[in-house]
Computed example of a mutant assay.
Amino acid sequence: MNVTEFHTITDQLFNKIELFLDHFAEEQDIDIDYEINGNVITITFPNQSKIIVNTQEPLYQVWLATDKQGYHFDYVENEWVCTRTKQSFDKIFSQSVTDQATI
């Protein structure tokens, strides 16, 4: 992977995150605020808990910070995979959003 490919793939991920959050907020009838600032998405829930997703260009990784834990993801076979648990970004992210939205 090169830098251009990394940016293309992470841009797609950020778009996917935005769509997921919009759908989740509508489905759950809650107000989720999110802000994208460069390579960082900060998500704030009604209870003021936060999730932060950011890219780590030098490592070609995506990092996810939740109230409970932090995760690092490598891009493996067209999917972001946690370096520790081997679970997909989608699975960990959606579970984290659900958990923090219902605290």
Rank of each mutant, 00 (worst) to 15 (best):
N39G: 07
K86V: 05
N2V: 00
S49E: 14
D99W: 08
H7N: 14
T8A: 08
Q12W: 09
P58A: 10
D29G: 04
T98Q: 15
I17H: 00
E77Q: 08
V81C: 05
T42P: 01
F6A: 05
F93R: 03
E79V: 02
E77F: 04
S96M: 13
E77P: 00
H23D: 13
F93H: 06
W63S: 03
E26L: 11
D99S: 10
T42H: 11
T42M: 08
N15Y: 04
D22N: 13
I36K: 14
I52P: 01
Y60T: 06
H7I: 00
L59Q: 12
T66N: 05
W80I: 02
F89E: 05
C82P: 02
E18H: 08
A101W: 12
E79Y: 01
C82N: 15
D31N: 14
D31V: 11
H23A: 12
R84K: 14
E35A: 12
A101H: 06
K86C: 01
L13S: 04
T4I: 13
E26M: 08
K68T: 12
I30C: 14
N78F: 07
D33G: 07
N47D: 14
N2I: 01
E26T: 06
F73D: 02
V97W: 04
D33P: 00
R84Q: 07
F6K: 04
A65Y: 06
E77L: 02
W80P: 03
F89K: 05
N78E: 13
T83E: 13
E77H: 09
T102Q: 15
T85G: 02
Y60E: 07
S96Y: 14
S94D: 02
H23Q: 14
W63Y: 04
F24D: 00
I36L: 11
I9E: 11
F93P: 04
Q95A: 15
N54Q: 10
N37F: 10
D33R: 11
V76S: 07
D33H: 13
D99Q: 11
K91F: 12
I30L: 13
